[in-house]
């Protein structure tokens, strides 16, 4: 469903991505891992249109989306979360989700100001759907709190909920487990699996928590210094010597993930 061919991206003299080929099959959970500064976030930013690639092509559902701005890409069905949480902090939990419904609704300034009948109907629908999503991610009891007042774990879940509200086909998650404790991470894993199984949404997961990655992903791509060094199933990747070298110092982590999986 997502095909990336020969992507290059540099920042000044720094080559953040070199000749990246990356494909995601519909219905998969595909993990993208690699040490700090490997270029994972940069790749997500290119897919979601926040950055434009220097070279190469991104296509989604058979259409070239390489040079579209992020707002257009979102409307094509790719939604995402951010490594540094980007919620609408001064809005309530429910309102954050409601903003996610923007792409699926129509009411403009004028018709909203005049409260035309179709606007009221649409608004009720936005409300209903958003509450349904809150229920789905288990945040209903937080509904009227300001998003910025939530603990980080719930903020990350809320970001996923907001992305779901756009009804994406593809969901990009950038380190959704960062800052979460073990219990929260397990809950997150369940939610991600549920999203794939029940909502049929394809997922790209950038994550440092190897436990989580090994447990829920179907495919893993390993990035190091802007290059792909390995690709395969969780078991294949864990045995790959290059990956182990790249993660030098993180060997324990890999081992732990391996044990969790077997």
């Amino acid at each position: 469903m997502l095909n990336i061919k020969g992507i290059w991206k540099s920042f000044g003299g720094l080559m953040a991505l070199r000749h990246i080929n990356f494909d995601v099959k519909e219905g998969d959970i595909k993990a993208l891992i690699g040490p700090n500064g490997a270029g994972k976030t940069t790749l997500l930013n290119i897919i979601s249109g926040i950055y434009q690639p220097d070279k190469g092509e991104v296509s989604f559902l058979g259409k070239n989306i390489s040079n579209l701005p992020s707002t257009k890409i979102a409307r094509k069905g790719i939604s995402r979360t951010f490594q540094h949480v980007e919620l609408f902090g001064n809005m309530t939990v429910l309102e954050n989700i409601m903003v996610g419904r923007y792409v699926k609704t129509k009411a403009g300034f004028f018709s909203s100001g005049l409260k035309m009948p179709y606007v009221m109907k649409e608004e009720k629908e936005i409300q209903r759907k958003s509450e349904e999503i809150l229920e789905y991610i288990n945040l209903t009891q937080r509904k009227n709190e300001l998003a910025s007042n939530l603990p980080i774990g719930e903020q990350r879940i809320l970001e996923i909920g907001r992305a779901l509200a756009t009804e994406p086909r593809l969901l990009l998650l950038d380190e959704p487990a960062a800052g979460l404790n073990i219990r929260e991470t397990r809950n997150l894993g369940e939610i991600i699996k549920k999203i794939r199984e029940e909502l049929k949404i394809t997922i790209v997961l950038v994550e440092h928590d190897m436990d989580l990655v090994m447990r829920i992903s179907d495919w893993i791509t390993v990035l190091n210094f802007g290059e792909i060094i390995a690709e395969g199933t969780p078991l294949e990747v864990q045995k790959n010597p290059e990956v182990i070298v790249a993660y030098l110092g993180d060997e324990e982590e890999i081992q732990r993930g391996y044990n969790a999986h077997t």
């Binding site: 979601s48 249109g49 926040i50 701005p69 992020s70 707002t71 257009k72 979102a74 409307r75 939604s79 995402r80 951010f82 980007e86 919620l87 609408f88 902090g89 001064n90 809005m91 903003v99 996610g100 923007y102 792409v103 907001r162 992305a163 756009t166």
Partner: peptide, 11 residues
């Protein structure tokens, strides 16, 4: 609150 997230939400 966040232009980055607004864009990513298709606004």
């Amino acid at each position: 609150d966040s232009e980055l997230a607004s864009n990513a939400m298709g606004l």
